[in-house]
Amino acid sequence: MLAETVTQPEYEVPESETSFERCPYCERPFRTDELLIHHVGSNHRDSCTDEELEAYEAVESDEEFELFTFHVKAAVTVFMVYFMFSFMYALVWA
C-alpha cells in the first residue's frame, strides 16, 4: 500500500488563538510576526518583495547574534564547571 502524498498541507488554528499572522503566499498561520518573516524569507524568497527580504535578513541577523550569545554563555558555563570540579578535587586531595 502506497502512502498518500500531501500536496497541500492543512493547518488547524484553535478557536482560542486569536492573534496570528497568515502567510500572504501560502496562507499558513504563524503565532508571531517574526516567524512569518522567517517563513516568507526562506520559503518564498523568489516571490517576496524587497521589504520582506530586508526584514528577513534583519531577523536572520538577530537570530545569529542570539545563537552566538548562547554559545558564549554555554562555553563559559562549561569552563566554570570544569574549574569548580578541578578546584574541589585539589581541595579534597590536598
Rank of each mutant, 00 (worst) to 15 (best):
T5W: 14
T5G: 14
V6I: 13
E10P: 02
E10L: 04
E10T: 03
Y11F: 06
Y11D: 07
E12Y: 13
V13R: 11
V13N: 13
V13A: 12
P14W: 02
E15T: 13
E15N: 11
E15G: 13
E17I: 14
T18A: 13
E21A: 12
E21T: 13
E21I: 07
C23E: 06
P24M: 01
P24W: 02
P24N: 00
C26E: 09
R28E: 08
R28W: 02
R28G: 02
P29T: 00
P29M: 03
P29E: 04
F30G: 01
F30L: 02
R31A: 09
T32F: 06
D33R: 02
D33L: 00
E34A: 04
E34I: 01
E34P: 01
E34V: 03
E34Q: 03
L35M: 08
L35W: 01
L36M: 05
L36S: 01
L36R: 02
H38K: 03
H38A: 00
H38W: 00
H39A: 01
H39P: 02
V40K: 00
V40G: 00
V40L: 00
G41Q: 01
S42H: 03
N43M: 15
H44P: 14
R45Y: 08
D46A: 10
C48N: 06
T49D: 15
T49H: 12
E51Q: 11
E51P: 04
E52S: 09
L53C: 12
L53G: 06
E54Y: 12
E54M: 15
E54P: 08
A55P: 05
A55G: 09
A55V: 10
Y56C: 09
Y56V: 03
E57L: 15
E57S: 14
S61Q: 12
D62H: 09
E63M: 09
E64H: 06
E64D: 07
E64Y: 03
E64R: 08
F65L: 10
F65I: 12
E66C: 09
L67H: 08
L67K: 05
F68Y: 11
F70I: 07
F70T: 07
H71A: 10
H71L: 11
K73T: 07
K73L: 14
A74Y: 11
A74H: 13
A74S: 15
A74F: 13
A74E: 15
A75N: 04
A75C: 07
V76E: 02
T77M: 10
T77C: 09
T77L: 11
T77Y: 05
V78D: 09
V78R: 10
V78N: 03
M80P: 03
Y82T: 04
F83Q: 04
F83P: 04
M84Q: 06
M84L: 09
M84Y: 11
M84A: 06
F85G: 02
